[in-house]
Each structure stands twice: as C-alpha cells, then as structure tokens.
Design a protein around this nucleic acid. Structure first.
Length: 488
RNA sequence: GGCCCUAUAGUGCAGCGGUUAACACACAUCCCUUUCACGGAUGAGGCAGGAGUUCGAUUCUCCUUGGGGCUGCCA
C-alpha cells in the first residue's frame, strides 16, 4: 500500500515551530517511502479562524521546499481539502453512528456542563460528561429538543475494558475505557469536532500514517474507537515528542523563543538550515553528523529514528547551522540573499547599478564568515556605505593613545599618496606608517580600523580600506582626528 | 487531582547487557591572526535516585523523584 501522510493544520494563527516540525516529519516520511504528502485544512473552529494563517502555512512549507501532492493549490482526488467544505460527509457518518446506536444527541447546555465541571472540581472528582443524555427515550428527546433545538452529537465510548494501540515511537500504549468521556462529534453549529472530522478524513483520504504531536496521544482512544465503530482499519500512529521552549514548556506565544515560524524567514534564516534543524530535533539518523541536505534527510528518515522524549528549542544551534549554510554559499549567492535586506536598510538602491552590484558582491565576500542571519547584513556592512556616525565606546581608547595624532597624520600622508589603490599598496602604506614610527603594526591598524569603521571588529583592515576607497578613508581619518580633538 | 508520555553533560543526540559512554552546539584554554569571525588543537562537563533480573546494567523490570502532555461544543 502506498504510504500517505498528511499535515493538517488548523488555520487559527500563524504557524509556529511545532506545527512546521510535524509537517517536516510528515513530509520526510512520505518522500522517504515514495508516498504522498497531503495538506488538509482543519477549519472547523469558526470562532478562531485567522485569515492569514493558511497562506503563511503554505508559504512556510514552500519556503522549506516541502511540496504537497494533494491539498489547496495542488488538487487531488480526495477533496475538498478544507473541512469546512466537507460538512455533508461528517453529517452522513454521524447519522450512521446515530442509527447504529453508537452516538446520541446531547441537549445539555453549556451552562449545565460548566456547572457540572465546577461541582466535579469542588468534589475533587475527575471532570467529564455525566452521560445524562446517553440513554434518553425518543419521547424524552423530543421534549428536550423543544428547549434546545440544536443539540450536539456525542459518541458513545465503551464503558469497560481498555483501548490500546501500538505507537510507532512509543510502542504499546493503553487507556482504561471507563476514564474516557463521551466526546462531542458534531457541535451545535453543525461543525464537526477535530476528533470526528480528523478520523473521517484520514480514512476517506487513505492516510496510512498519522504523524502528529505528542499532545494528541491521549485522544488516540477516541479516534481508535471511532475507527472501530465504523469498521475501518486504523492508520499507523506516530506521536513524535513535542518541542519545548527554553523554559521546558510547550511552545507558546508566551515563550521567549520566537515561536512564529514566519519570523525566522524574516530574520534571514536559510530554508536548508531550518529544515536541517527541524528534522534533527527529535529525530536522529544515528550518525555523528550535523549537516543533512533535504535529499539526505529524505533518504535517511525513518520512524525508528524518532526520539520519544521532548526536545528544547536551541536557538544557538540553529544559528550555528545557519552560519554553516551561509558559508556554503558562493559570494554571488550570498550577495543576492542579502540584497533585499540591504535595500530595506537603504544601503543599496532599489535598482542597483552594475557598480552597486559589484560593490555588494565584494562586501558579501568579506562578511561571509561573520554573518549568521541575513538580516544582520546591514549592521555588519554599514561602514562600507556610510561614514561612522559614532564610535564604539570600548574602541575610543585607540584615539586616546599618545601616538594617535602622529599615527593619524602619517596615515593621511602615506595613504594620501597611494596612486594605485590596490590591496597591496594600501597594506604597504599602512605598514610603512608603523615602521616609520617604530610601532607594531597593530598599533596602527587598530586606530585605523576605529577611524574608518567606528568598530573594534570586522573584516581585515586592508580589505576594508581597499573597498571603502581612498576618498572616504582619508575623510574618515580626518573625522577621527577632529573627534579626538573635541574630546580634549 | 486523574490519566498518558518521558528521563544519557547546559542543549541536541549516539548507545539498543560487557564501550576509555561517541558526536554536535554552547563554554574554557591555546594556535592561526591587525580585531571579530572562520579554521585547527586541547579541556571541563553526563547515564536523576532506589530496588530487583543478570556473571555483568546507561541499556531489561518495578518504585520514587523530576519534566512534559491531556483532562473544552479548541485544535
């Protein structure tokens, strides 16, 4: 049988790391098995619907190179792929359960339910529905329906025995049936609940492996009994561990770690780094290796490699990975990657000239070993475009050395007389200053770097001077001398 | 509270009865070097605790403790 997995997000907010990581596993496993990866939209909660949610979700998947075989924008034979468009189907199956006595109308009001829960809490009893409507006679139902014309439909869970299943990552898991609730399958508004729509759709869409976060494991009995009631063969259950935030809690908007997936795109993480990172959180190939291309992940991904304990999101590791992938880029590629950020910062014009492009290419080459996320580009390269408007405080000491005036003067003279502004000539001019003044090269280089970049760190000084150009270099050294003078 | 899952360095993970407990990130020191990075080398740091099973437990079982999840007409 062909493997079919699905990513079934609920469009109730912007995608977060946990969502996408599940999608990564679904995708990798489908591709590894030569199967299908399906995108289904679980839009059954009309109160929480968020317009941009689905488009962000799709954008995120595409960005990481995870294409889906069926679903919005891809078509497929099992549509529609929006649950809100499949209401007839759910009603049909709910009706079947009703007729077979596996489900019943429940007329209890939300108020009664809340009251019930409060009482149970007060009595330190486990919360749950008391099955008040489970065995209503037809007459009683008619009567109740007059008071509450829009009842919900509940599923009759078994009262005895156990429901167990084999989870691909956890092995045997079982739950006692007496502890399970008669859960709602159709809400008062006629929409199905997750549990019901999910099972019906997974079956109808031929899903063979349900890969979903661990938070679903405790509702598996509900799903299992539904499959049983319908006489359907359940899929293989796979519950990968959750990704926790830096405090060890389930990722949420409260977490310090940015959980919003889109923010990583904006910050300039590379899709290959992100995919590599997400795939290796809670999954391991068993090798001593950290870099995996998409193709390698597909080749190596197996359910057996999935861990069974939660993982904490480690931003430092993501950053490291991103740096690695950036260093693998050619100068030209990096140039194109940082261009939008440079333009947004006003450093590079919207329609760059050929010189602009060439200059940016050289800038890109010089920062490649230092940049971690693309959005850092403007901050890292500002001095290639603009005179420093301030000096890094801890570097100002270089201006305060007693030899500084002499160094600056001579730098101005020697650099000023360089006719052909090549890297070699610039370097020898700077070194000659040190020699003449009988100083160590560093004693000239540090103040020069401060004067020209305003910073104590960055690419090699000679490369900087060479790229920034003679005019600007001389101007900046003079500015530093003025700055020094003002200090006194 | 109840139920379920889970436990190897700070973090991610390897291990699948016998290992000097591997690797990566982070950290420290050193080398390279004009700084910062990159690169290279070295180092510190771990099997939560307790019972079993076994000739032998990180590995199997149980308990304790810790962590997480679920407990909605949300998913």
């Amino acid at each position: 049988m062909k493997t079919r997995t699905r990513f079934a997000p609920s469009p109730t907010g912007s995608p977060h790391i946990g969502n996408i990581r599940t999608a990564v596993f679904d995708y990798l496993f489908a591709r590894h098995s030569g199967g299908d990866f399906i995108l289904r939209v679980e839009d059954t909660d009309r109160t929480r619907y968020v317009e941009s949610s689905l488009s962000d979700m799709m954008k995120g998947l595409r960005w990481m190179g995870m294409d889906w075989d069926e679903g919005p924008g891809a078509g497929g034979d099992c549509g529609p792929y929006f649950q809100s468009e499949r209401l007839d189907l759910y009603h049909k199956y709910a009706k079947q359960l009703l007729e077979e006595g596996r489900a019943y109308y429940c007329f209890c009001t939300k108020e009664r339910l809340e009251d019930l829960r409060a009482k149970q809490a007060a009595a330190k009893l486990p919360p749950g529905y008391d099955r008040a409507c489970r065995d209503l006679t037809p007459e009683e139902q008619e009567e109740k329906r007059r008071e509450n014309p829009s009842p919900v439909i509940r599923f009759k869970m078994k009262r005895e025995g156990e429901t167990s299943f084999t989870d691909a990552v956890r092995g045997e898991v079982s739950f006692r049936n007496e502890l399970e609730d008669d859960f709602i399958i159709i809400k008062a508004d006629g929409f199905p609940t997750y549990h019901f729509a999910n099972v019906v759709d997974d079956h109808l869409m031929g899903i063979t492996h349900v890969i979903r976060g661990e938070e679903w494991i405790s509702s598996a009995p509900k799903h299992l009994q539904l499959y049983e009631a319908f006489g359907w063969t359940p899929p293989v259950w796979v519950h990968p561990p959750l990704i926790l935030d830096e405090r060890g809690k389930k990722l949420s908007k409260r977490s310090d770690t940015a959980t919003a997936f889109m923010s990583y795109i904006e910050e300039g993480y590379l899709p290959e780094a992100m995919l590599n990172f997400m795939a290796t959180m809670g999954w391991s190939s068993g090798e001593d290796r950290k870099l995996f291309s998409k193709e390698e992940l597909i080749e190596k991904f197996t359910l057996e490699g999935i861990a069974n304990h939660p993982a904490i999101f480690d931003l430092m590791k993501l950053r490291d990975l991103n740096g690695e992938y950036i260093r693998m880029k050619t100068d030209e590629e990096l140039k194109e990657l940082i261009k939008p950020y440079m333009q947004a910062a006003g450093l590079v014009p919207g329609g760059p000239s050929e010189e602009d492009e060439e200059y940016l290419l050289q800038v890109a080459a010089l920062i490649k070993d230092r940049i971690v996320t693309l959005s850092e580009a403007p901050a890292l390269t500002g001095f290639f475009y603009r005179d420093p408007d301030e000096y890094e405080p801890k570097g100002v000491k270089h201006f305060q050395k007693e030899e500084f005036p002499a160094v600056a003067e001579l730098l101005l003279e020697r650099l000023g007389s360089v006719e052909d502004w090549t890297l070699e000539n610039v370097e020898s001019a700077v070194r000659s200053v040190a020699e003449t003044l009988e100083l160590k090269p560093a004693q000239v280089i540090h103040p020069a770097r401060m004067a020209v970049t305003g910073r104590t760190w960055g690419p090699g000084l000679f490369e900087i001077l060479h790229l920034v150009g003679k005019t600007a270099v001389l101007r900046r050294i003079k500015a530093a001398m003025c700055f020094k003078a003002e200090q006194i």
